[in-house]
Design a protein around this nucleic acid. Structure first.
Lengths: 201, 201
DNA sequence: GCAGAACCTGACCGATCGGACAGCTAAGGT
DNA sequence: ACCTTAGCTGTCCGATCGGTCAGGTTCTGC
């Protein structure tokens, strides 16, 4: 990819086009939806032609995959730690922090996936993400899978994702700063996922 | 509308087409998105022609308005009761129950609105809904509008909406029955919106 | 019987969709 | 000098989009 690009330190105002297109794409997919975003829009926003977008990414689906892939890789990394939820409180806190940090780092990807994960079923990268979240849910509800537990998991996951990107424009004028959101979100999610030991507020 | 329809008790297997189209439309808007749903799809699912859809509803936006309108009317009805949140515990519980029942009754409408309320900005019925939720958020954060409070509100609203329709396919195979979800959801949301007096689980 | 409203349809419109393809330019290796 | 490759573009394609329109059918009120 960047092997034949010796101008990494030279004058290169353009961040290699591919990266730029991907970031613009995920921004649009999250805010306007996958179906609601055309390749022409992405091209216009990036200052390229539609043909150029299709040169870097073979199809619209490939662009979605490039946009969501890294987030899924990261999520798969922290997934094994979910086992710690039922062990020590430290391991539990550790996983929740990792998970919240994941949400914060991949705001747009998570938002896209949460909102459109059902309607885009069939696209490989979406199915992959659905499988990961399914595994996450299975781990969380191991042993006690009461309706209450399921609701708590659903509210925690969907609520956190929604609060991060989607709905904060209702509570305020614009997005809240991550350094302020992080502790509040950790406290709230900890409380939801650990009902036996309610965190102090 | 139905004034000139005396066959209300006669043989009329078709529920007046308008109603049928609206219910199919909201179902599609919620599951596939507004942009991702074509008038042709709706027509096919209903067994009508696209022209017929546009006969009953002047435009795609008008169909969206007809689909979401009743839910917004109902939400506006229960909105004044939000003032009770800061008064007696009974009034608070009453409002939360009303709100959860609203979510249950208008699952699809709420899901549509929560997921696409931002991207569809500009459409009158969407703006109206945004204004209502804004008023709701303002009432809830009156007095103490700390980041923690905003997060709690966001998680409660988005989480409840998500758990109702969107994400339960992760925790189980299909949607949970409302009579089981209701008490669990009431308990969870009560806890989130009233951190000072945590509900027992 | 007749006018007219309500209902439904196929044909058609311009615009836009995702995508295929040929060709242009600049840079690098030989 | 030459060729290859990467990057980017304009043009074109069939399909589909939301929407208009003229006409057909059936039912109702007079």
């Amino acid at each position: 990819m960047t092997l034949s690009h010796p101008d990494s330190s030279a004058r290169a105002p353009r961040p290699s086009a591919s990266v730029e297109l991907r970031s613009i794409a995920i921004e649009q997919f999250a805010s306007a939806g996958f179906a609601g975003t055309s390749l022409q829009q992405i091209a216009d926003l990036a200052g390229y032609s539609k043909s150029s977008v299709l040169y870097h990414f073979a199809s619209k689906e490939a662009l979605l995959e490039a946009a969501l892939g890294p987030a899924l890789d990261r999520l798969e990394q922290i997934l094994p730690g979910v086992g710690g939820l039922s062990s020590s409180p430290q391991a539990r806190a550790r996983f929740i922090e990792d998970f919240i940090d994941f949400l914060l780092e991949y705001r747009l990807e998570v938002h896209t996936f949460i909102n459109q994960g059902q309607s885009l079923r069939g696209i490989p990268v979406i199915d992959r993400g659905n499988a990961i979240i399914g595994a996450l849910a299975a781990s969380l509800t191991t042993g006690f899978s009461s309706t209450q537990q399921k609701i708590r998991f659903g509210v925690a996951l969907g609520g956190a994702a929604y609060a991060l990107v989607g709905g904060m424009n209702f509570a305020g004028d614009d997005l809240l700063p991550p350094e302020e959101v992080r502790p509040a979100l950790i406290a709230t999610v900890s409380e939801l996922l650990a009902p036996a030991a309610p965190t102090d507020v």
